[in-house]
Design a protein around this nucleic acid. Structure first.
Lengths: 230, 230
DNA sequence: ACAAAAGTGTTAGAGCTACACCCATGC
DNA sequence: GCATGGGTGTAGCTCTAACACTTTTGT
């Protein structure tokens, strides 16, 4: 049995973060240009190394801030990638996190002093290592979660309209929905509070703003076995 | 920007596997007694170290075989645990996998020459490190998946009866279901093929055996947005 | 013949889909 | 006054939940 700590090989541990953003029309991903070994500059996810006394999520969050200026973003762990040759220079296990943010909320922070840029999902550049696989998996998980829960709120401003929410879901699933059914579905969750205020400028009539009722927003569950009292 | 590989700290990378098993009545977890540093012997998940040229899942699978004899078990990645002090002796990141098997199918393999034992979920011993957290998360994911998909088939023999399937789901969710609704629900998926053979010995009447229609068993999806054509 | 588990049908209500028209306003 | 996007209602259907009796067979 191998339980001698000394003889075990050690690896580098990297953290990479996929930041999904929505600008009101299309889904985007934030990438940085990262110089590897003084030569190539390739677009990549926000990545860096784990420090000796750092928690994984703390490290991912620190790295995100270092590379983009983004702070206080809730990161969710996606997957650990560890194929032996995924990084040619040194054996590295990468733990990938992802987050959803509203592009407009953070745009100034991001673009000011950092080499980070938003890319549309269907217009991604060539990516470092296996970052393309990571993104594919991230999109899969985003869809999966959005299909189960009304998760999309995170990608919108605090006040948003039903048509904005619908556009978001149409961007996530790359399809269109019937607006009557869509709004009925979301309103029926009881998670939305209608505000007494309309969006101006986008349309002539103006759409009512809504807010998430955060109290109720952590109890929804809809399942294959609806009669399973989980 | 930190992209010098040399100055980065390296960690040990461990793989731990949670093996859920069902014996027809209760859900169990397979644990081994692992000597750490020649002193304490504590029950723990099946764990070991990543080798230099090994893929993560391959390593998890090798370790599982070394410790229990189990082979060809499909392992699914659960989560990476990496709190700095989770292993007091050396900084270790652990990537946790889990699997569902039928206890009876593998019982001889396991108990013959290995120090592995099945434990009921509500009768777990004190566990090594953060293995308790890992198991809690594993149960959560098992329930989540079982609620979305008819995943439970993996935990049953190739031929199984509806009452057995129901017992399994009742064990996973720790509740009871109406048998009329339960069987209707599962039969309506079209995933079950009824065999012309009855289980004998368990009841006087005998229950028909069913088999999973593996062709159809990779397309089910039921979602919060049923009208989202994913 | 009786006990024990298997198997099955109905009904009321909720939720889903598909569909088309009026509303408010800026120009 | 008209073009643009916002907002709403209904009918048919399917799915769900709740409920109780009959069937088979080992003893």
């Amino acid at each position: 049995m191998l339980n001698q700590y000394d003889v075990q090989t050690k690896c580098l541990v990297a953290l990479d973060s996929i930041i999904f953003g929505f600008d009101g029309e299309v889904l985007k991903i934030l990438l940085v240009k990262r110089g590897i070994e003084e030569t190539a500059t390739t677009w990549s996810l926000m990545g860096g190394w784990l420090r000796p006394d750092e928690d994984l999520e703390v490290a991912a969050s620190r790295i995100l801030t270092e590379l983009t200026g983004l702070q206080n973003i809730y990161l969710e762990q996606l997957y650990a990638f560890g194929t032996p040759d995924r990084d040619k220079i040194s054996r590295t296990v990468s733990i990938v996190y992802f987050a959803l943010i509203n592009v407009l909320d953070y745009d100034e922070q991001v673009s000011d002093s950092f080499e980070a840029r938003w890319f549309s999902l269907d217009d991604l550049p060539t990516l470092l290592f296996d970052h393309g696989d990571m993104i594919r998996m991230g999109i899969g998980k985003l869809r999966y979660k959005a299909a189960q829960h009304p998760i999309g709120f995170e990608l919108l401003p605090e006040k948003f309209t039903i048509p904005q929410l619908q556009k978001l879901y149409e961007a996530i699933f790359n399809t269109t929905f019937d607006k009557r059914n869509f709004s009925r579905k979301f309103l029926s969750t009881g998670l939305l509070k209608k505000l007494n205020e309309k969006q101006r400028g986008h349309s002539k009539k103006g759409a009512y703003y809504y807010q998430v009722d955060t109290d109720k927003y952590h109890s929804q569950f809809n399942s294959f076995l609806n009669f399973a009292k989980v």
